[in-house]
Design a protein around this nucleic acid. Structure first.
Lengths: 247, 247
DNA sequence: GCAAAAGTGTTCACACTACACCCATGG
DNA sequence: CCATGGGTGTAGTGTGAACACTTTTGC
């Protein structure tokens, strides 16, 4: 019989099971040509009143990805949204209630799908439910957040910036049908650079990832732009052939 | 006075603090022209005897990065090694002892710094301490690992492959002084591709990240190669100027 | 007809690819 | 002198960057 050499002292094993796991979601949206993040008011000392990311404790019988989806659905009503794990924050002093390790996710949502509910709730806003309200904040206007959420936001944004160059994830922030200018604007805002219109269009159209849906804008005070939609099917095909998306 | 609307039921808050956090380190080394990973024997049912990554529970008063460094030092004796968080694995069923969320890190070590200690320990290997032994395994020879460690290894390897193209981290796997062929070999093994010798050398040398240390190999049965070392200082300068490393 | 954004091609510089032979050393 | 890996240059191709004017619509 094998002689076993247990490293863990079984009598004190419970000491290791006293941590909390939380998930914090950095929910990005794009509207009025601004990159925005959905934030809530924090109701926990010593951060009461500060804006915070949208998060919650992970239930003991729930996977972390599952928890992220639950939180997202609960706070935005949205399901099947784009969600990506960013990083885990686990310094000992990050949470006032005890040892809480937080797994950060970022999410990309079509802000128009969500806007209605926020707006209507916003209109009825009252003092007593201010803490339950989520609001969109322009990335550039964000200052002091609760907990270590400034750090989490920063890293998530870096992650998004990197990601958006390597995979066609930006489309998740736009409505189903969009113009090339909207798309260019999105990239410009996320990456913080100015792009050349002609070069951008050439590059994007060469990727063959956009379906020309034979529609144009309506009621705009200028030449109406063609509308495109992202061709998910085609993207899958190209991936299998070893496509490298590279903006 | 503000009316507060607490979301968390404070009476049941303890229910959230029953998880364990662990760190699993994927320790990469490069030797004999092979990419290797340091593994240990698992001593926990139902995985007893299987190879596993090197990990441990995070202490309740210890940050996760700190824990990763502790584990690395304990198992390899190495400090100040390259360590990078990869991803967090948090499905409910991944650990037999309870809810354990594991944060995966990958580490790049100069295998020569470690080799001595393993070798000497290896020589005195006995049945009763087999579980404490760590051994290098060629990436290609790894089959069934304990827990979800195959998955963790796979994701870490993907992360390394991606990373190695974007930042000059590969040097951490080589001795202080190395030849261009060694470096090329390293990249070929990690990326799983064959590279053109002349083009590789041109590209690398153009980056100006290598110091020519005016030494050559000794006692080799062919023309001795020049030795280089990575110029960390120069790299910092170039970063500040917005360098993009791109292999 | 004017304001506002859409749409469109060419040129140039640079980076990447492919490719084959001589060199220095140890045995 | 032979085996082994070290070391080198050029020509052709493709990709990214810079750049300005015409078109279509609403008002």
């Amino acid at each position: 019989m094998r002689k076993r050499n247990i490293n863990v002292d079984l009598t004190s094993i419970d000491a290791y099971f006293k941590a909390g796991i939380s998930v914090d979601c950095v929910i990005f949206g794009f509207d009025e040509n601004e990159l925005k993040v959905l934030l809530m008011r924090c109701n926990m000392e010593p951060y009461v009143g500060l804006w915070s990311l949208i998060g919650d404790m992970v239930h003991i019988d729930e996977g972390i990805d599952e928890a992220a989806h639950r939180i997202l659905k609960y706070r935005t009503g949205l399901e099947n949204v784009y969600l990506e794990q960013v990083k885990t924050f686990g310094s000992t002093e990050r949470h006032p209630l005890g040892r809480v390790v937080s797994v950060a996710y970022y999410s990309l949502v079509k802000i128009s799908d969500y806007k209605v509910s926020t707006t209507s709730r916003y209109l009825e806003e009252e003092w007593q439910n201010i803490y339950n309200e989520a609001h969109w904040h322009s990335i550039d206007d964000i200052t002091d957040l609760a907990f270590d959420h400034n750090k989490i936001l920063e890293e998530s944004l870096n992650c998004l910036r990197k990601h958006v160059r390597e995979e066609p994830v930006g489309f998740n922030l736009l409505p189903e049908k969009f113009t090339l200018s909207q798309l260019q604007n999105l990239y410009e805002r996320i990456l913080g650079v100015k792009l050349d219109k002609r070069n951008f269009r050439k590059k994007i159209l060469n990727m063959k990832l956009l379906k020309d849906i034979k529609e144009t804008q309506q009621n705009v005070a200028h030449r109406p732009a063609k509308l495109y939609s992202f061709d998910q099917e085609r993207y899958q095909q190209l991936i299998e052939k070893g496509l490298i998306f590279d903006l």
